[in-house]
Simulated scan of single mutants.
Amino acid sequence: MRHLSAVLSLLLCAACVGSEDTPSNVKDLRVLGMRMDPPEVFAETCSTDPAGLADALVRPVRLTALIPDPAGDGRELDYTLWACGSPNDETCTENRVELARGITTAGELVINLFPGPGAARLPDGTFLAQKVLDEDTYRGLGGVRMPLVLWVRGGGEQVYAQKLMVYGCRFFPEMKPNVQPALPGVLLEGEPWEEGVPRELSGPGPFVLDVPDLSAVQESFVVPSFELKPVQLQEAWELAWHTTLGRMSPNETGGADLGGGVERHRVEWSPPSDAQAQEVRFWVVVRDGRGGLSWVERRVNYTP
């Protein structure tokens, strides 16, 4: 059975992570995540013929990309969004259809797509979704995932980020569309850390960050097995932790181990020993493993 992918971000040129960097430290142009609303376009009937799923394929969706650019000083960023025929083509150089282009700045880039990416056609009139199916070993079993690639440029930096747009269908009566994951909160040193209210921190650290228990908000869901029987699964969210100063350890938490256990979402933030007093930004990006993704931002006023 295939596990549903969420997001693959590729950092190139000056925006890449070198051996002297840590993935959790955001000091240059990045795409930390791309969210699709809804996270899954769901059809009531299943078909391997894109024409038979036209209503679902043209359904409008909204893409929101989280693009920090700490060193950019508010500069303008050029972006291009493509729908792609192959998930292995990480920079979308072939079998692609341009969906949007424009200029943005750091923050959240919102692109409303109507009709949706599934309606994209190649120059010969072929549905791009058909190309995706042709490359899919499982011929859409468990859902069709159309790659979307966002290319962002600013100065000498550029970033490519790939998001898989999930198209699902009701193969079994108990199947239902995915719901976007949403963190119930963030804890800093064991205390609630509210959005928009910077906390005061001082000292060398490390400081402990955590989230409340997620067991009540992680969905159960049904997928078809290779034998075309329903299989009940449970989400095990994965969290990626990022900051503009210092490092997070570990950078990623959560997910399920081979025994089915779930890792605790506890990390430590360590500011550098030579840090100056400043505002520090944090992002926590949550992925549900099925195409759903969201994030929260928090801030602290830090003094050594």
Rank of each mutant, 00 (worst) to 15 (best):
M1N: 06
R2S: 10
R2P: 02
L4P: 01
S5C: 09
S5M: 07
A6L: 11
L8I: 03
L12G: 05
L12C: 12
C13K: 15
A15I: 06
C16G: 08
V17W: 14
E20C: 07
D21L: 12
V26E: 00
V26Q: 00
V31Y: 05
L32W: 03
M34I: 14
M34E: 10
M34T: 00
M36V: 05
D37H: 07
P38A: 15
F42K: 06
A43N: 08
A43E: 10
E44H: 07
T45Q: 13
T45L: 13
S47D: 09
S47T: 15
A51D: 06
G52Y: 10
A56R: 13
R59V: 02
R59Q: 12
I67E: 07
P70Y: 14
A71L: 11
G72F: 08
G74Y: 13
G74C: 04
L77T: 07
D78W: 05
S86P: 00
S86Q: 09
N88G: 11
D89Y: 06
C92L: 12
C92R: 04
C92D: 03
E94D: 05
A100E: 08
A100G: 06
R101K: 10
I103T: 06
I103L: 13
I103H: 01
I103G: 01
T104W: 03
A106M: 05
V110I: 12
L113D: 00
A120M: 04
R121F: 14
P123D: 14
D124R: 03
L133I: 15
D134A: 09
E135M: 06
G140P: 02
G142M: 02
G142N: 03
G142C: 05
G143H: 11
G143C: 02
M146D: 01
L148P: 03
V149K: 01
V149A: 08
L150I: 04
W151Q: 06
W151M: 15
W151I: 09
V152Y: 06
R153C: 02
R153W: 00
G154V: 00
G154M: 04
G155Y: 11
G156K: 08
C169Y: 05
R170I: 09
F172T: 05
E174T: 06
P181S: 01
L183P: 10
V186G: 03
V186L: 14
L187Y: 13
E189T: 10
E189C: 13
G190K: 15
P192D: 11
P192E: 13
G203R: 00
F207N: 11
L209V: 10
A216M: 11
S220I: 09
V223Y: 02
P224R: 01
S225P: 07
S225D: 15
Q232I: 09
L233I: 01
L233C: 03
L233G: 02
E235W: 08
W237G: 00
L239R: 02
A240N: 10
W241H: 08
W241I: 13
H242C: 09
H242Q: 07
T243E: 13
T243Y: 01
M248C: 10
A256I: 10
G260V: 00
V262Q: 02
R264P: 00
E268V: 00
S270Q: 14
S270P: 11
S273I: 14
D274Q: 12
Q276V: 09
Q276S: 12
A277C: 11
V284W: 02
R287Q: 04
R287M: 13
G289F: 03
G289R: 00
R290S: 02
L293S: 14
S294K: 04
R298N: 05
V300D: 01
N301C: 08
Y302T: 01
